[in-house]
Design a protein around this nucleic acid. Sequence first.
DNA 1: CGATCCATTGAAAGATGTCAAGCGTAGTGG
DNA 2: CCACTACGCTTGACATCTTTCAATGGATCG
Lengths: 250, 250
Amino acid sequence: MIHSRPIAKKTDAHCPHDKKVSCGNCRLNTICLPLSLHIEDIDRLNQIIQRSKPLQKGDYLFRAGDAFSSVYAIRSGAVKALTMGDNGDEQITGFYLPGEIVGMDGLADNQYTNSVIALETASVCEIPFNRLEELSLKLPSLQRHFFQLMSREITQEQQIITLLGKSNAEARIASLLLSISSRNSRRNLSANEFLLPMSRTDIGNFLGLTIETVSRIFTRLQKGKVIGVDKKEIIINDMNALQQLAKGAE
Amino acid sequence: MIHSRPIAKKTDAHCPHDKKVSCGNCRLNTICLPLSLHIEDIDRLNQIIQRSKPLQKGDYLFRAGDAFSSVYAIRSGAVKALTMGDNGDEQITGFYLPGEIVGMDGLADNQYTNSVIALETASVCEIPFNRLEELSLKLPSLQRHFFQLMSREITQEQQIITLLGKSNAEARIASLLLSISSRNSRRNLSANEFLLPMSRTDIGNFLGLTIETVSRIFTRLQKGKVIGVDKKEIIINDMNALQQLAKGAE
DNA sequence: CGATCCATTGAAAGATGTCAAGCGTAGTGG
DNA sequence: CCACTACGCTTGACATCTTTCAATGGATCG
């Protein structure tokens, strides 16, 4: 059991469903839009973005095979992206937290290759790609920005590949926890205490482990005083040890 | 002690490959540049692309940390991309065959996150990104094309994630062989017989397996008449069985 | 309250890693 | 031309880790 106070659920905007929020004043814009645009250009961008999609847990944002039209910035909550194998087995390809962008896989063949499902109540900003494309032709720094966003998605997926290349289960789980931790601190949330938005089953699927193994590793890390676990609540007690484990140290 | 291999020099005078090749008549352009550009636009693109980089086995195309300047299309041969962990362990993030493009990871932070090394003698087309960016502002279909290329890289890395998510070694190796097979047939090469450009060690590193396991799986698949193996030469005898194995069927 | 879902735990089976030995090839220097 | 070494690969025996199968408990919901 963890005896410290419960973690208050934090939202990323004053009101996560406030439709009046604009990119200019969004708390997340340093993450999803680190732009050097003029104020009027931000306004033009702002005008094409739609913010009318609150999702409940389990809702699909889009499905693999749907026609590609938009990319989506996560504003609050969390989602998972997954592909369906030929036989019907799902493989989670990533978890996306506020400030991160999903749907960029759909551009290649004009249809999404992943389905994206809300892990909890979530709100997103829809960015119609056609209009973004047009605007990018007029705003060089916006074009560059989207090239960079896609590049960042590539590097992050390479980090996942690196994570999955680790041989043992402990290293993979440690890496996942560290990843969530650092993404939280980027949003000025605690790097040491947070709620996992996904189930053990999702973690296992993502990391190529069974749910039982995930559970056992959590228990083992807890017994070793590296982390505290209470359901979805995680407290990192020994960041250094966790980093060592992520590297594969015994 | 780590011995750095020399980086191939741009100034190499004698290129064994035809420098007169242009994107317009390159055999690979349906893969790396499936463009709907006007003939004069292809010419403009053609003018910014440099084709003077023959690499020998083991040569670096670029190193992680180098300043980002260009992306590279593989013209012949094969390369591997790898990241270095904090401790010094390498993780291969991908193999790139002719018609495929490396270096798009470098755009996010203006420096490459991967090192890219030739697996065999290879030639590449260098595409300076600044100039590509400028040209993209004038040619909407080129801008779209590069968005699509990056999107394709994203989807392909998601396929790798899916591959690594598979629990057993047989499925991972089967998937890798099928990937190489299909990429070969895209280039009108045999889907059933090919030479692996990479070592067993590289395969193991990429798939998160030890070299011994890789070797054993090859032997087992050979004994099961699914494939034929002779050093780096692979013959797929039973494509169907290999696909079943890739799905995880026993 | 019963049903269901999610998570945890134990025991046994199976898969992969580790350690060790050996083989063949390519390259090197005598 | 012949050792000789270095390297990549294969194979075996054994240790270790993860999965599988089974049982249980807690939470949630109708």
